[in-house]
Amino acid sequence: MKKNDLILIGILLALGIIMLVIINAAKSEGSRVLITVDGREEAILELDEDIVYVIEGDNGERNVLEIKDGHADMTEANCPDKLCVKHRDIHYDNETIICLPNKVVIRIIDGEDSGLDAVVY
């Protein structure tokens, strides 16, 4: 290993960790869940209402989203890799669960900060 390799490792690790810290520091609780399928908006659900929502695609794609105790979690999917099901539950603003094969994106929206996008006096 060359000295340059160590510098590269140092820079990339520092970059990754700084980005992770910034993303974590900017975290705020979200209040709603946006479901998009193939870039189209499918539904917006409230995070404080427990619900089991089934997302069905045009070609038999099926994902089951469960909202419970303010957390959204993908509990079932018929995609081959099941990465979305293994993903931990989400509740912070802008956190996502993505099911790539089924083109489903679950995203938490309307965090406390972004609630101020229209203030009228």
Partner: peptide, 15 residues
């Protein structure tokens, strides 16, 4: 996915 939010996965993947 027509979603820029995927980029949030990058820091973890970088590390």
């Amino acid at each position: 996915l027509e979603s820029g939010y995927v980029i949030f996965y990058f820091p973890a993947l970088l590390v």
